[in-house]
Simulated assay, not measured.
Amino acid sequence: MPENDTATGFKNRIIEAVPGVNHNFAARCANRIKRRADRMQEEFDFYESLRILGLVSDTTARDAVRNLETVTA
């Protein structure tokens, strides 16, 4: 089972799912997926840090994100 948290792991999973795919296209898609996953994790870490610092009183980071989005919307 390939690692899922690396671009190579994503590329291997794409190639397994779609055997006839061009390897360069799979690599480009894997890089996009990796960047998106990294950005999502950074945002989660940011809100988790707010909770740890006591700036947001929610017990979970997901609740904090949801509450902050409803306040700003």
Rank of each mutant, 00 (worst) to 15 (best):
V21T: 06
Q41Y: 04
D38F: 08
I52F: 03
A26W: 04
R51P: 00
N24A: 10
K11A: 09
V65P: 04
G54N: 10
N4A: 12
K34D: 04
L50N: 06
K11M: 11
R13T: 00
T60R: 08
R36D: 03
N31C: 08
A64E: 00
D38L: 15
N12Q: 15
T72G: 03
E48Q: 14
N22T: 06
A26P: 06
A73C: 12
A37H: 04
P19Y: 06
Y47T: 02
S57K: 15
T6M: 02
E3L: 11
A17F: 05
N67C: 08
L68P: 04
R35Y: 00
T6A: 09
E43M: 08
D58C: 08
T59M: 10
I33S: 07
D38T: 15
A73H: 07
R36L: 15
S49G: 11
R51K: 15
I14V: 03
N67P: 01
R62K: 14
V21G: 01
L55I: 09
I14E: 00
E43D: 10
K11T: 03
R66F: 12
L55K: 14
R35T: 10
F46Y: 14
Y47Q: 04
R35S: 09
C29L: 14
G20F: 11
N67M: 09
T70K: 15
N12C: 09
G20P: 01
G54M: 05
R13C: 08
G54W: 12
E69Y: 09
A26L: 03
I15M: 14
M1N: 09
E43K: 07
V18W: 04
I14C: 00
N67K: 13
L50P: 02
E43C: 07
A30L: 03
G9S: 01
M40S: 11
D38M: 13
G20K: 13
T59D: 10
G20A: 13
N24L: 09
D45E: 14
C29T: 07
K11L: 00
D63V: 05
F46A: 05
R13Y: 07
D63N: 13
I15F: 04
G9Q: 06
R36K: 12
F25N: 04
T8Y: 02
D38H: 10
M1L: 11
R28S: 14
D63F: 01
A27K: 05
N22K: 03
R39F: 04
T72R: 15
S57R: 14
L50Q: 08
A30W: 00
R28Y: 14
A61W: 05
T60S: 15
A64W: 07
N22W: 02
N22I: 01
R32Y: 12
M1H: 08
E69A: 15
P19G: 03
R32V: 12
T6V: 07
E3F: 05
R51D: 03
N12M: 14
A7M: 06
